[in-house]
Computed example of a mutant assay.
Amino acid sequence: MKHPLPAQPAHICVLRLSALGDVCNLVPTVRALQRQWPTARITWIIGRAEHSLLAGLPGVEFVVYDKSTGLAGMRNIWRELRNTPFDVLLHMQQSIRASILSLGLKARVRLGYDRARAKDWQTWFTNRQLTPHPKAHVLESFMDFARELGVDDDRLEWGIPLPEAAREEARQILDGRPALVISPCASPRLRNFRNWSAEGYAAVIEHAWRRHGLTTFLTGGTSTQELEMCERIAAGVSEASPVNLLGRTSLKGLLALIDEARMVIAPDSGPVHMANAMNTPVLGLFATTNPERAAPWCWREHVVNRYPDAVATHLHKSPDEIVWGTRVRHEDAMSLITFEDVINRLDELLALTADHDKAAGSVRHDV
């Protein structure tokens, strides 16, 4: 028997710790909940870096969990919330860490993914599951939580706040230059294989400068992989050298930079979804992950999509023959993306958005 859902929840707990792109995709669900129940309290348990990106989101009480603190950090959250009963817990993080954390929260209803979408035994930690939604995009899967609660108005709205200090940080970096932001590397995890070639990026940077007058700003962290990638990119550019910003911006500053940029190019990673949230034209590069599941939602028709080719080449199947969400974990998969693929999409998208009018952070789209 299903646990009954609250008709008028007074206090909703959102449990989603990571990652940067995912929390950007989740914001429209929070907005939908707020439109449906303007007086409801919303407490979001979130990771430290993710909080620094979304801090100040109106109407949301954040509780920050630093995963480096392990069980001790969980106990701190349990103590902080020990006298806080929730009408419903939206268990939106499919990980054992998040599920263990959920055990110390007081909630009558614990809503999680349906069995087809659940991972890491999440259904063991929930007492109500979503209605199945085969082949859903990540953003749609988050919105399914609001729909399950009875929300009808599922328009997409972000409104991630940017403080003036972040805007000033971006202005000083740009110094009036029209910008192409490239974040060349996805998270440096084992067998990730989402990164395109340094040579390809270098050629795109030259093209963006010569044809469109865009200065490229390279963004990312300071891992060895990222530093080496950006050194190789810079070495391959003969003119219009890119500006290296690795590790030199705050997350809010990066978001402000993306907000001011003419375009963002990146593989399947946080920056494509940050750009999507700010309504900045974004060109996603996809071969190892399926863009139908993970592309930047508002710009998903403009991605470079070599995923079907990668599935055929390295898994010897078609996308219809594999489990939804399967990643092509092969180091050569992204090499299926050509320079021509990228510059053709870049030229098309820049032409399409030449008069792009973006009410930054407040744009609405239908899901």
Rank of each mutant, 00 (worst) to 15 (best):
A240N: 14
A240Y: 07
S241L: 15
V243F: 05
N244V: 08
N244A: 02
L246P: 11
L246F: 02
L246N: 11
L246W: 06
L246T: 11
R248H: 11
R248G: 06
R248W: 03
R248S: 09
T249Q: 12
T249D: 07
T249S: 12
S250R: 11
S250E: 11
S250A: 14
L251Q: 04
L251S: 03
L251V: 07
K252W: 06
K252N: 07
K252A: 14
K252E: 12
K252L: 15
K252Y: 12
G253F: 01
G253M: 08
G253N: 04
L254G: 05
L255K: 14
L255R: 09
A256M: 04
A256W: 07
L257P: 03
L257G: 08
L257A: 00
I258C: 05
I258F: 08
D259Y: 02
D259L: 02
D259Q: 13
E260M: 14
E260T: 12
E260S: 15
A261Y: 02
A261D: 06
R262I: 05
R262K: 14
M263F: 10
V264C: 12
I265Q: 01
I265N: 03
I265G: 00
I265S: 00
D268A: 03
S269I: 05
P271S: 04
V272T: 14
V272F: 08
V272M: 12
H273N: 07
H273Y: 05
M274R: 10
M274H: 10
M274A: 12
N276E: 07
N276A: 12
N276S: 13
N276M: 08
A277W: 02
N279C: 07
N279Q: 11
N279Y: 13
T280E: 03
T280P: 04
P281K: 00
V282K: 01
V282E: 05
L283I: 12
G284F: 05
L285Y: 01
L285F: 00
F286P: 04
F286K: 04
F286N: 09
F286T: 10
F286D: 03
A287R: 01
T288R: 05
N290I: 07
N290F: 07
N290S: 12
P291Q: 09
P291H: 04
P291V: 06
E292N: 15
E292D: 13
R293Y: 05
R293E: 11
A294F: 15
A294V: 15
A294E: 15
A295Y: 10
P296V: 00
W297V: 15
C298V: 15
W299E: 11
W299H: 13
W299F: 15
